[in-house]
Amino acid sequence: MEQPGYDYHVDIPGTTIFDGRMAMKGYALNKMCYSFNSRENREAFAADEDAYMANYRLSDAQRDAVRARDILGMIEAGGNIYYLAKLAGIFKLSVQDVGGLQTGRTTEEFQDFLNSQA
């Protein structure tokens, strides 16, 4: 599907606009992450990640990205950061850990980068 019109002409490097196209692509992954609002579901995922992902019918690309803890891969596969944050919580990753993973920095380097913008 082509991108819809209107406001979609701007390319912002390093930024995915989570629009209808991405929402369709990422639905299964995001729905799985939304289920992690429940402790029971978080525990079921931790007990058997592959079975849990199969149950939510994640695509191969989505499963590979989750197995590899590859945040950029999850976003590329349609993941929305607000839902992915719940998965990051299961992996015990802080927001700064996630920032570092996406930008090729250690968590400390990422924190320094944030501080440098004050």
């Binding site: 930024t15 950029l72 976003i75 930008t103």
Partner: peptide, 13 residues
């Protein structure tokens, strides 16, 4: 603020 993507950590004072 930006949480996601290669531009994560972006702030614009």
């Amino acid at each position: 603020h930006q949480l996601d993507g290669q531009r994560a950590g972006f702030i614009n004072k």
